[in-house]
């Protein structure tokens, strides 16, 4: 009896959390202009799948958008993995003066509101002549922009047994060898976690592309989506059809890798 009550509770909770997605799908299948002002539990009159090709066509050259977004996401993921794991390794396993204070500094940079940095960064890239390229979207994220990921890598590296490191040392590995041959291969769960987090953040990011990308050939999916949201006429059905399409890869990636995801978040850095 109690088990059933528990199950029921869980199902209700799950339904509540699925609701936004369900609403989005329902709205994406509404006839044109019908999704506004309708109660939120409204079922579509018929299934207007044509919203999907229409939305794709209105977003612009879809191949270009997908290519740009993929390129950008891939660059950010690779960059983050490399830079954050390097820093995480140094903080976890190398001894040097000022290490703990510097690590505190890493965490402290989390507190700088993005609003403080946005405009000066924009001015910097304007001076460098890099506005309307992908560099302003990649460099600040990859270099120094991800204290939380450095933290994740550090905690994970702390938990790797010292014996392994000693063994590698005996085999002639120096710091780089230990990092590359021992640490990274063992850190697969964190790599997965950081990759997924970065994927979601970059794929969906709207503000940075809005600020930096202007030319037609540099647009991203999230930016193209946003143009559906016009001042007085929100084309809800197209917006939602477009969103569903842009979201699909995110859901897929998350679903496929969610197991890795959990193992990567290791918080107490106990060394065996």
């Amino acid at each position: 009896m109690r088990r059933w009550a528990n199950r029921l509770l869980l199902v209700a909770l799950a339904a509540a959390f699925l609701y936004p997605l369900a609403w989005m799908l329902s709205a994406s299948l509404q006839p044109e202009g019908a999704a506004l002002g309708r109660p939120p539990f409204y079922l579509p009159d018929g299934l207007h799948f044509e919203n999907y090709p229409v939305a794709a066509a209105r977003m612009g050259r879809i191949h270009r958008l997908v290519w740009n977004t993929t390129l950008l996401t891939a660059a950010c993921i690779l960059g983050q993995l490399l830079c954050c794991s390097l820093a995480g390794y140094a903080f976890a396993r190398l001894r040097f003066a000022g290490r703990d204070a510097l690590f505190l500094l890493v965490l402290a940079t989390m507190m700088l509101p993005p609003q403080v940095l946005a405009i000066p960064q924009f001015l910097l890239f304007r001076r460098l002549g890099l506005v309307d390229t992908f560099w302003p979207l990649i460099l600040p994220t990859v270099l120094g922009g991800a204290p939380f990921f450095i933290f994740l890598f550090r905690q994970y590296f702390l938990s790797i047994p010292q014996e392994l490191v000693e063994a590698a040392r005996v085999d002639g590995c120096r710091a780089w060898g230990v990092y590359w041959r021992i640490m990274l291969p063992l850190a697969r769960p964190v790599i997965g976690t950081v990759a997924i987090f970065t994927f979601l953040a970059t794929w969906n990011d709207f503000w940075a592309p809005l600020i930096y990308l202007n030319s037609e050939e540099n647009q991203t999916l999230a930016l193209a989506l946003a143009s559906f949201n016009q001042s007085y006429r929100v084309a809800v059905e197209w917006l939602m059809a477009g969103t569903s399409m842009v979201l699909a890869p995110c859901l897929l990636v998350y679903f496929l890798f969610q197991k890795v995801f959990l193992r990567g978040v290791r918080l107490s850095g106990a060394k065996g």
Partner: peptide
């Protein structure tokens, strides 16, 4: 050297 990418970012972007 390991910290270099982060340090560059710290100076230039933060």
């Amino acid at each position: 050297l390991f910290l270099a990418p982060w340090a560059i970012g710290l100076g230039a972007f933060l």
